[in-house]
Write a protein that binds this DNA or RNA. Structure first.
Lengths: 346, 346
DNA sequence: CTGAAAGCGCTTACAG
DNA sequence: CTGAAAGCGCTTACAG
């Protein structure tokens, strides 16, 4: 790679000092440098294709224009990318870049990730979980600028942006009730996932609010085959429901497949709703799936926004604790209505 | 954030010079620094929790220990994460971190991405495509250290690591033939995707090799509903096939669903195979899907390996062209046998 | 209005 | 065996 031009090169070519180059190129030439020299400098910079060396800038300013992102399992999820993309877009708009390290849920790796990132002089941290969960912010980071996306600190030591799972689940259940359903069963995910319980809660609230008896949830899981098996069980019972609320979109695929095997048309004889608005599944299932959208992109954007605002503010550490934003911000999970819901046939 | 300790702090605490600290901490103390001072320095470093400032290191060494990764659409794909994870793991093992920028397939963003990365003094570049394609390496990078993952330069200006799509498709088709199928139809993806044509080719080769007539492929697409519609069409024809080769796993979901609607059991009356080994689909479809695994992780690992080897070698630029590795490396796409294939029933 | 100096934190020749 | 100096590329007071 041909060595990049430095400000010295520009100064030499323009016949001025490095200081002058710096001043002019940073918009502080007016009133400091003669107009003709300014033009010379600009031309020289252009000619040499000069851009300042970010590393040198960082050393001097003691700012790296880099945010460290620690994530627990990015590869597992198709959603990880959206969260990260939202965060990256916000960062890039401010001239920031992301250094992301995936810990694969390994505590040792996590500790090393923070060390590595700290050595790289990142200006702030973002922790992003691929599935909603509690996350204990390491004490070493308590004094650093950081925010959480799709997770929250039980001790609330950092601002967190999480989906309003309860409201989302309530809304999609309510949608079913509004269309006339009275016999609704929920197929839940696994209890190790925080969202599972929250979605159950939203379901129960909507059902109870409608004056219906809350049926015991049926544990299914998150995969196609889990939804399939649970649906086979539920739909073969003595009093099958007219609608099924699934733990997520993939489980809904299993339900739709089970209905097909049972000769039940969807949504004619059975309404089905999912959760996630998984772009690879929901819009192209047959029929297209009514579901709830998880605000992954927004979580990334919002969390990065608060980190950046603090970093850019450059508030002295002492003033930081004064104006903390709301510690846990619940983000809307909008209902996405498609074709998998119809009024009950009986 | 409390200011990190510097080597000066360590030197002060140990009562020596910065040079001594540097020497000892970099393992060059023996024969240079007295044993007792060495101990003092190590102790001081430990006590202050000293780690060198990577930014300062970079400025001096003119190496950033960072590789720039430019990607075309990471968020769209569940696979993007695996490729990146493979690349990141290889990089981290060498003390390298990744700066990844997604261009969202926008040429302007791509140009700016390279500029940004170059300003950040990255030591090398990786370009990763989310879907196999041709990629013209910008001339500005011709002299830089770079490699391609899941894409290739038509001008072969950089080493590329891509999946052997033809062989993968051939193998899965052969598997069907081995199990006795003679009436096999392929549902293809869309022609804008390079892999589509390659998979067609592999299919045609296997069929021809078995002495069978090659049926015209049926264009379906990559989504569940596309596979569904195409399967409905093909299976309702006068002479339905006994097996269907799908463009990818998601399309196979549609095929399985269509079969269910038609009362055809899979694999009893219809065998179905996919492509991708999408972890969210293939292992948990009902029945679990026989498919072909795309080597995403390997592409990331291999491409990063060659970038790093060159960077670490520090070969003078002049010597680089001498020992170039094979320019396009085809990576194996292994057949993954599960439950969706059985001998034909007629 | 402009140039020389200092310093961000580090390592590596180079004197002593 | 050890410390002082130089330099990576930049910007910002500070003299002139």
């Amino acid at each position: 790679m041909p060595r990049k031009a430095t400000s010295q090169d520009v100064a030499d070519l323009a016949g001025v000092s490095r200081s002058a180059v710096s001043l002019v190129l940073n918009g502080r030439g007016a009133g400091n440098i003669a107009a003709d020299k300014q033009a010379l400098i600009v031309a020289a910079a252009q000619q040499l294709n000069y851009t300042p060396n970010t590393v040198a800038l960082s050393l001097r300013s003691r700012r790296s224009s880099t945010i460290g992102v620690v994530t627990d399992a990015i590869a597992t999820s198709a959603f990880g990318g959206q969260l990260l993309e939202g965060a990256a877009d916000v960062a890039v708009a401010e001239g920031y870049l992301l250094l992301v390290i995936d810990t694969q849920n390994d505590l040792g790796r996590e500790r090393r990730a923070y060390e590595t990132l700290q050595n790289r002089q990142v200006d702030g941290f973002l922790f992003a979980a691929m599935s909603l969960r509690a996350y204990d912010v390491p004490t070493a980071l308590r004094s650093a600028t950081c925010a959480l996306a799709n997770c929250f600190d039980p001790a609330d030591s950092a601002p967190a942006f999480i989906p309003d799972e309860v409201a989302g689940s309530r809304a999609v259940t309510q949608h079913l009730i509004d269309r006339g359903h009275r016999d609704i069963v929920m197929l839940t995910g696994t209890s190790d996932v925080v969202a599972s319980g929250l979605r159950e809660q939203g379901f129960a609230e909507a059902v109870a609010m409608a004056g219906l008896q809350v049926p015991g949830p049926v544990t299914a899981g998150w995969e196609i085959d889990k939804g399939y098996a649970a649906a086979m069980h539920v739909l073969s019972g003595d009093r099958p429901p007219t609608a099924i609320v699934c733990a997520n979109d993939r489980s809904a695929v299993g339900v739709v497949l089970a209905a097909a095997h049972l000769g039940l048309s969807v949504p004619g004889e059975l309404s089905v709703v999912g959760y996630d608005d998984d772009e690879n599944v929901a819009p192209c299932l047959v029929p297209a799936l009514t579901t709830v959208r998880l605000p992954h992109r927004e979580m990334g954007e919002r969390a990065m926004r608060v980190v950046l605002d603090r970093v850019l503010d450059d508030t002295p550490a002492s003033a930081v604790s004064e104006t903390r934003p709301a510690l846990r911000t619940l983000l809307d999970c909008p209902l996405v209505i498609r074709e998998s819901v119809a009024p009950p046939s009986r």
